[in-house]
Simulated scan of single mutants.
Amino acid sequence: MPIDAALALAAEPRTGEIAWDHKDVQLYHLGIGAGTPATDPDELRYTLESRLHVLPSFATVAGAGSPGVIGGLSMPGVDVDLAKVLHGGQALTVHRPIPVQGRATATARIAAVYDKVKAAVLVMRTEVTDADGPLWTNDAQIFVRGEGGWGGDRGPSVGLEPPAGEPDRTVERPVREDQALLYRLSGDWNPLHADPEFAKLAGFERPILHGLCTYGMTLKAVVDTLLGGDVNRVRSYATRFAGVVYPGETLRIRMWRQDSAAAPAAPAAAAAVRVAVSAVDRDDAPVLADTVVEHT
């Protein structure tokens, strides 16, 4: 079996130093569609170094995305074909606002291995700290087709109940034709997002957008629309990648406000926004599901 669950879970964590500065933050923001209109004061907060603040989802690429999804595939006990790999979900907890420039220590390990019979799911946990303490924790759920069926723990399988009623806000965000090519410069070099031949081998008609690009676009929409543009209000952000996005399509982002009872993992003062994202061009095909942004 290419995945040895016991070996993967018992492996020593990998620790390394990561660093970033304003150029990395600006490139990430541009990669998720910031900067349109270019002179809009609200957009300049994402693109101009003298006004810059950091969208928390930058944590998924800080230090060139290391170790991230690809790093998880090189851990002991894991030997899989990259063409069978999909990013199944992402969960981020922000412990403090992310500085525009920083140096930190990232510690990564396989936190869980689930047997979904027709696939395996690896949970790659990365904890990042700097001289002042914890900064953020990332959990990447890595879905590996064809690698299940060894009788292991099935793991959680129950999704969230759909939000009730009409959304409080609905916005649409276009995905540029070159968006995946720009986003990958932040550190995710998987050829699935750039090479047409590789995409076909993986079962797609053409290269697809990074799930984490959609993840960032969605958080930016929530912050800009419901959180007054204040990135520091975000406490955690989790999603399940329910479908693909092709560059050139348009995302429809529906948002529902929730009270603090809907955000049990967050501080008592927190509330939440439930989000559903779909592809307008394909009859609202689901893209992100079970999505929650917890905030103050």
Rank of each mutant, 00 (worst) to 15 (best):
K84W: 08
V293S: 05
A263L: 00
K118W: 09
V275H: 06
L9W: 10
R96Q: 08
R252T: 04
T93M: 08
V94R: 08
Y246Q: 07
P163G: 09
F143M: 06
G151Q: 03
M124S: 14
G149Y: 03
A266V: 06
A106I: 00
L209N: 07
E49Y: 10
L73T: 12
L48Y: 15
A140C: 14
D153H: 07
R103H: 13
P207N: 10
K200W: 02
T36S: 15
Q258L: 09
H87E: 08
D42W: 11
P264D: 11
A266E: 12
E166N: 11
T137I: 07
H29G: 13
P207C: 01
P156A: 11
V25D: 14
M217S: 11
L7M: 15
G148S: 08
S66N: 13
V69K: 07
V222E: 10
H295K: 01
G155I: 04
A108M: 01
H193F: 01
G102N: 00
G63L: 03
E172T: 14
D224H: 06
L160D: 14
Y215F: 13
D259Q: 06
P191S: 03
E161T: 14
I142A: 07
P99D: 09
V277K: 05
A119T: 12
V54T: 13
A108F: 03
A140G: 15
Y246N: 12
T36G: 13
G88I: 04
I253L: 00
V275A: 03
P264I: 04
P99F: 06
P134W: 07
A64C: 13
R206P: 14
F143R: 01
M255K: 00
V287Y: 07
G159D: 02
